[in-house]
Amino acid sequence: MAFPRLTRTVLVSLAVLAAAGLAAAAAAQAPPAVGDPAPAFTLKCLSGNDHALADFKGKIVVLEWTNPGCPVVQRHYKDGLMQAAQKAAKEKGVVWLAVNSTNPGHANYREPAELKTIYADWHAAYAVQLMDADGTAGRAYGAKTTPHIFVIDAQGRIAYNGAIDDDTGGRNADQTNYALAAVDALLAGKPVAVSATQPYGCSVKYK
């Protein structure tokens, strides 16, 4: 189908504007880099209460994206690694928040009551688990995997973004827990030596 020159020009212009708009929107939604302010959020915990990131102003916060249907998450809990990290962080005065961005239409989705049971059986030691079923918080941070860890410093900036540790296969006895290393550096007033790593695990099951 042939368009008159003017119509074609208008269509091309609209397409260019649309593409530019999409690019601008994508840029506006780009996840924060290390050093950037941590995106604000208010999410409900498994008991239905609201929790905002701002509630923890002045504290170091660890965000752990989680999904109990993911075998990598299961391994970290069944081996006791995640709970040990959560307890160690808590003892240092750090707030550890688990975030679940699994969409309700996915096979891995579990209702809050069931999540309570699963994580209680695993003896999870996070402060609260937050429901992010529409994925708003997950997308704002650029959370890609379960688990995926973000450490936020006391000034509210992202200090670490990546994997929980350097042991993708779960066979390294001398593993480095990146989340705790970042926490320790922040508490010591030192730069975080490793501030970004490739997270590994299942994809976050966004809507």
Binding site: G35, I60, D153
Partner: peptide, 12 residues
Amino acid sequence: ARPAGPAGRSYS
């Protein structure tokens, strides 16, 4: 290299 803030804050 980014400077470390009071709590190891990092900057771009």
